[in-house]
Amino acid sequence: MILIIGGAYQGKLDFAKANFGIREDQICDCGRDPADFSKKCLWHVEQLCLECVQKGIEPRDYFLARRSQWQNSVLICRDIFCGVVPVDDTCREWRQATARLCQYLSAEADQVSRIFCGLEQRLK
């Protein structure tokens, strides 16, 4: 599994397309559609986390329960961890739960890349 993280609009999906040959039909946009692990690339994993949090599910448990399904995936998650702690309860839990998931996925990943202004910083 490849984990790609980075701030909003930094070029994470473009990086995945250029480096792992991801085609449009292989992308599941979790901000728009239900999570589909048959697709090679899951984009906006942070939105899937928000959905989990709103349903009272810990995102890490969600991924753990489906572990065999994403072993060869490219997972793209927005870094939402650096701002002020949100006042809104849901946003606050979303931020923390997404961060916990990223730590778990990062430990599992074969490669972790952070994208900054379109440039890769290899973290693992």
């Binding site: 909003a8 930094q10 650096c82 002020v84 202004c117």
Partner: peptide
């Protein structure tokens, strides 16, 4: 680009434009 705030459409547009 790295916070957990859900911005209004105008602020998102500004962030997207600056990122480009």
């Amino acid at each position: 680009y790295s916070d957990a705030v859900r911005y209004d459409a105008i602020t998102e547009q500004y962030r997207r434009s600056l990122a480009r």
